[in-house]
Amino acid sequence: MSSAVAPLVEARERWLTAIVPRPYANPYLMGFGLGLVLLSAFVIMGRGLGASGAFASGAASVAATITPDRARASHYFARYLGADGGPRVDWLVVELLGVSIGGLLSALLAGRVRATIERGPRISRRSRLALAYGGGGIMGVGAVLARGCTSGQALTGGALLSVGSWLFVVGAFAAAYAVAPLLRREWT
């Protein structure tokens, strides 16, 4: 390392170590908090939480902009578009914006914001990023088929005793446990 950047590196190290990330909160307490948030959504709006639906709304808007004919032809995208076939503001998009702001605020106040790539010692950054991207893509396909994800199906439908939502939970966790042994290198 050249001596010119050494003080900068040292300053960065000092700054990073000065912020001691606070430990995470009790999972049961946070689960209770999350349950109250979900219950408020039921009581106020008559609907639950979601995440993949916001992605679907975003994808529909992008499709409507770059390939309007195909967007209108897709019965999946059509429901996320306005009557004119153009983008509209969806409840879930605003909710997911809130999720991002809420997550950032919580992390900032706890000194947990840090540029990193989470991975095990035996996997390269590039492979980990590829697995995150590929995994995200596969989840996207699954969330379309299942009409929701861990938020809209597992949490929301689970709490409302929907049969399809519980089938989703069983399918998702069974599959994750089945493939996890093949992916051990990713984390350990």
Binding site: V141, C149, G171, L183
Partner: peptide, 16 residues
Amino acid sequence: GGVVFGIGFAAAGLCP
């Protein structure tokens, strides 16, 4: 959809 989602969940380590 749940099975497909679960495979992606394990690979990404994250859900939506």
